[in-house]
């Protein structure tokens, strides 16, 4: 996991406890959470420009989905893409630079929060247009199929993207060309402020089945369980060169973007939000590993501090 060219990650690995380093998937879970919290704070304080779409609450999906990918596999993401980037092994320092608009960023500071990529690592970019990366993933996958490389392409999309025409076209393309592509639909229950079940009559995984694609429906309730399932999904996609659709039922603990203002009548369902907040998946995973909640919070705070301090120092320079 250690990447010597990743200065911030190296600093983090110096300070986190050994129980965390011994569990790389949990480490990634905490790394994503801390990074998102740091970016949120930096956005609110004006250090980072523009909207920041946080994946706080959805970390299990990114880690479980990407854990079985090889370095030679490909991943494409959406506007809520920091977690996917880190889960696939993207360089944290370059991610921070990117959000600061620094030319040392992973996209030379030209993309920003919604457009992070590390092309040489198979991270082919996140996307500001909902659903637009999905057909691109089909093309990447078709290229690998023609080359006969055996590589798998994974693309993340949200529940909102499932009502984009181009996503329906892409599911069909993947099916007719038998592409080794995995569609990971993160159903976080809201497309911006709109409840997904207000906008869609049937389940997303059923839609994928309707295109002739094998579909799996998962809850974000257990990292270990999801890691095992995703390992099988990735392996099967690779071996059979067939598409797979995975719907993850999850929840966005933060608002659509970090600086979004709550309206007089809030769109969030209060009971659901409270229930989900009380059952934070990152805390749950730490507790299941035998750590107490405060220890988990302390590690997250410490990692967040390292990232925030690094960013603030960069800006002062």
């Amino acid at each position: 996991m250690k990447n010597l060219s990743d200065e911030v990650l190296a600093n983090i690995e110096e300070v986190v406890p050994s129980w965390l380093l011994r569990n790389p998937n949990l480490f990634k879970l905490i790394l994503i959470r801390s990074t998102e919290l740091a970016f949120g704070a930096l956005g609110k304080s004006g250090v980072i420009r523009g909207p920041i779409h946080s994946s706080v609450g959805q970390e299990v999906v990114a880690v479980a989905a990407c854990a079985s990918l090889e370095d030679s596999d490909f991943m494409l993401s959406n506007h809520r893409g920091h977690g996917h980037y880190l889960a696939k092994g993207g360089n944290l320092t370059n991610l921070i630079y990117e959000l600061l608009g620094d030319d040392r960023g992973c996209c030379s500071g030209l993309g920003g929060s919604m457009h992070v990529a590390e092309l040489d690592s198979g991270i082919l970019g996140s996307n500001g247009i909902v659903g637009a990366g999905v057909p691109i993933a089909c093309g990447v996958s078709l290229a690998e199929k023609i080359k006969g490389s055996g590589a798998v392409t994974m693309v993340f999309l949200g529940d909102g993207a499932m009502n984009q025409g181009v996503v329906m076209e892409s599911l069909n393309l993947a099916a007719i060309y038998s592409l080794p592509v995995i569609f990971v639909c993160e159903n976080n229950q809201y497309a911006y402020s709109t409840r997904s079940d207000d906008m869609t009559k049937n389940a997303y995984h059923e839609r994928a089945s309707g295109f002739g694609i094998e579909a799996t429906h998962l809850q974000d309730t257990s990292l270990n369980q999801n890691l095992k399932i995703m390992e099988k999904v990735v392996s099967k996609t690779r071996q059979k060169s067939m598409p797979h659709f995975v719907e993850f039922f999850t929840y966005r603990l933060h608002r659509h973007f970090e600086t979004e203002r709550q309206r007089a009548v809030d769109y969030l369902l209060a009971d659901l939000h409270e229930h989900r907040s009380m059952n934070d998946p990152v805390t749950r995973e730490c507790v299941e590993l035998g750590q107490d909640e405060s220890e988990c919070d302390n590690v997250i705070a410490e990692v967040k501090f390292i990232i925030t301090s690094f960013a603030e120092t960069c800006v002062k320079k």
Partner: peptide, 28 residues
């Protein structure tokens, strides 16, 4: 068939697919 690819009537879909092919070694 590998180089001459018939598509469904899905202009957005196949134009997106062309982007994926182009960033991954081909010239569609």
């Amino acid at each position: 068939a590998q180089r001459v690819i018939d598509t469904p009537i899905s202009e957005s879909g196949f134009c997106g697919m062309a982007v994926g092919l182009a960033v991954n070694g081909f010239r569609p």
